[in-house]
Structures are given as C-alpha cells and as structure tokens.
C-alpha cells in the first residue's frame, strides 16, 4: 500500500503542504516503487486523492512530473553554525542517512543514471555541486583555506561509492544494513578521513 504522507522525505520547510507538493510527494513514492514506465498519472492522482485533470493542471505530462522531481533536490544544506569538526561530521552523517531514508528514490535515480538518462545525471551533478559548496564552506570556517573543496569532493565520491555499493550488494536489505551500528561506524570513519584532508597541509 502506498502511504505518501508518512514516507514524505524531509525537504526542510514545515509550512503548509500545497497541492503541488502533495502531487510531487506521491509521485516520488510511486516512481520509486514501480519505476518510471509502470507509474501512471492516474496512480499519482489516486494516491493523493485528486482527479486526473487536477494533476494535469499542475503537470502537463508524466515526464513534466518526473522532471519536477529532479528539479527539487533533497535539501541537505549544512545547518551547523559553530563550524567545528564534530558539527561538520554530524551534518555529513545526517545527510548520508537522509539518502538512506529515501533509498527507493535513490535506487530509481541510480538505475536511470547507470542507463545514461541525462536528466538524472544532471540531478547528480547539481547535488554534487551543492554538497561541495555547503561542506567546503563549513570546512573552511573550521580549518581555514587548506583544501576544503578537495576534501568535500573526496567525501562525495567516497560516500556515493559506499552508498551505491550497498544498494547493489544488499538489494532490498540495503537500508537495514546501512542503519546497522557496524556500518554506521564505517561511514563515520569515511567522513573523518575526508575531514582530515581538509585539515591537512599538502604540497
């Protein structure tokens, strides 16, 4: 059964949900569960208690709906103002686990990306750029100007590799494995390794 509201990822704002957002949330869940091809606008309409024309009013085609999802990246702006190492590490861990909580969507994206879908690749590039901007700004505040962008770049590649590998290796159990303490310790270790690069002098 589809429960779009319960599974709604945290996009940051907690203001009143608009119809458009409700449609997007339902679409995200349905695309994730059934894949792009097997999801219809009718299914999206039914899941959020709207009529077909109501959905079409906001999104002309199924493709528009999908494109809108990709234009609306999971929001993971760095929120730690203190700018110390522990706050940065905690924020990076939190961001990683936001993706774990949205693993069905991540799996859909990965499938599209490996298939070379330009829209989903652009989404990945935009997410990466936003991640590097946020994390390197925080690192720079904490460690000065040594190598924050490099460190953030390394973190992104390392963590996306770990995340993709978990999806491929553990399939349906990937989120459970990644929530395990043992795995969480490893992710913390990866994050520490990347942060260390930011604090280190390199020729």
């Amino acid at each position: 059964m589809v429960q779009p509201v319960e599974r709604r990822p945290n996009f940051g704002g907690d203001e009143q949900t608009t119809t458009r957002e409700r449609i997007l949330t339902a679409a995200r869940v349905l695309f994730s569960e059934h894949g792009y091809d097997a999801t219809s606008v009718r299914m999206v309409a039914r899941a959020c208690g709207l009529t077909n024309p109501a959905v079409h009013y906001h999104f002309r085609t199924k493709r528009d709906l999908y494109d809108a999802l990709l234009a609306d990246p999971l929001n993971y702006a760095y929120d730690g103002k203190s700018g110390d190492r522990i706050a940065i590490a905690a924020s990076m861990e939190h961001q990683f686990y936001q993706w774990v909580e949205n693993i069905d969507f991540a799996r859909l994206l990965l499938r599209q990306q490996v298939g070379g879908d330009p829209q989903s690749l652009q989404y990945l590039r935009d997410s990466e750029a936003a991640y590097i901007d946020d994390i390197s700004a925080a690192m720079e505040a904490a460690f000065g100007r040594e190598a924050p962008r490099r460190a953030a770049q390394l973190a992104f590649t390392l963590l996306s590799g770990a995340f993709w590998d978990a999806i491929l290796t553990y399939g349906e159990n990937a989120a459970t494995v990644m929530r395990d303490d043992y795995y969480r310790q490893r992710i913390r270790g990866f994050i520490d390794a990347a942060i260390r690069v930011a604090g280190r002098n390199r020729p």
Binding site: Q113, V114, G116, L121, L124, L154, F156, T157, L158, L159, S160, G161, A162, W164, D165, R186, G189, F190, A193
Partner: peptide, 23 residues
C-alpha cells in the same frame, strides 16, 4: 579492514560515476 573498505568505496564511487558520465 577499514582501509580496505575505504579504498574500495572510493574506487567504486569514481568508476561508477565514470560509467554514468562517459557511457
């Protein structure tokens, strides 16, 4: 054991990204 996982994760991230970007 930790370092092994780290090297593998990094290379996996870089090569999968390569697959995606360059086909």
């Amino acid at each position: 054991s930790f370092t092994t996982e780290l090297v593998m994760a990094y290379i996996t991230g870089a090569t999968m990204r390569g697959h995606m970007e360059t086909g």
